[in-house]
Design a protein around this nucleic acid. Structure first.
Lengths: 188, 188
DNA sequence: AATAAATGAGCAACCGCTCACTCATTATTG
DNA sequence: CAATAATGAGTGAGCGGTTGCTCATTTATT
């Protein structure tokens, strides 16, 4: 046996990538990512064989972080509206707390770097939330629409809320609550 | 005077850029864009001094195209719901008809290449629509929220509809109508 | 004849990635 | 319990290729 790979360095690379991509876009140089992570340029490739692999793992990393947040404190026995509110507010707060993370996440989402394989892995990690969203999709307002629409609607409404909060940061909580109300009206 | 610059070549470059960026991302090479447009690599720079200029003008080009579509056939005296529906359906149909254009548009939107200057120019071109959206923003459901929220909500809801239509292309019209109903419920 | 568009070879800068090498860490010996 | 062998992480100069952009030259338009 020899030296073990350090998980700290791995996450340092991922965090450095977020920072670099947030400012320079997906064309951010691997060398810059490495130097920001405090390692040599070559070392990056012992953790991630190619840049595309790094970006895919980064996408996974960001998504899992969000899901971890959603699962924390999830009230499984509360009413549907309260559970939906939990999902709503945890995600929105994460997006506001880590705007760079969210920016990189959407850059990767729009690009065609993320493989179906990666998307599959992401989908596997959301069972509790997925079930709640299924219940929402069965409500009157969503009945005539395909099942995924309720989730797509929530994430898109959150984007709208984010954009608005960015312009009126002081009204953050009020906007969050009112926007959820609008969501619930649309869905019911 | 001498030889005039050809508007056809200009739009050929813009259309080629859309094609290249849709497949290779914003890192698409200017040389490839030029060759797809049927011109020499250097000629691109007599039309656009830098790549960033090209991308900014491309963003403007895409946005103006959408607004032209929205203004065509706009019923200024119809009910608010019908006017909102016109905006909704024309934009959605454009997005479905030109998926690459929309993809490039959102890539540019997420990147930080688009300057405030460009965004200002875009905002100037939407007076009729802007006025309708102001009326929507005054409705009960949007009263407690900042003015921009109603538009942000529409465009984000359209994104949700687009994603869903991509998965169920046959139900396109039904999804479009139902999603608008959901929007109207949220807004009223 | 005068002007400016069009060309494409060429340039410096930068890209992702490799590779020969050093070194930290562990397992295996006597 | 040393001494040593085996392993693979860590390094950074450097490679082949690509990038955005320039510029001497040619070509088309007035």
């Amino acid at each position: 046996m020899a030296r073990a790979r350090s998980p700290e360095k791995r996450t340092a690379i991922l965090e450095a990538a977020i920072e670099e991509i947030a400012t320079s876009g997906l064309g951010a140089a691997t060398a810059k990512i490495a130097s920001r992570a405090g390692i040599a340029s070559g070392t990056l490739f012992t953790y991630f064989p190619t840049k595309d692999d790094l970006l895919n793992e980064l996408y996974l990393y960001l998504k899992l972080q969000v899901y971890a947040r959603l699962n924390a404190g999830f009230p499984p026995k509360a009413s549907l509206e309260r559970r939906a509110w939990h999902i709503w507010s945890s995600y929105l707060n994460w997006s506001i707390e880590y705007p760079k993370h969210r920016n990189v996440s959407t850059q990767l989402h729009v690009s065609n770097i993320v493989t179906p394989e990666t998307n599959r892995k992401v989908a596997q990690q959301s069972t509790v939330i997925a079930r709640t969203m299924e219940e929402v999709a069965a409500l009157k307002g969503m009945k005539e629409l395909p099942g995924e629409f309720a989730s797509a609607l929530m994430s898109s409404l959150q984007e709208a809320a984010m954009d608005t909060i960015a312009l009126h940061p002081k009204q953050r909580d009020e906007i969050s609550r009112q926007a959820f109300k609008a969501y619930w009206r649309a869905v019911r």
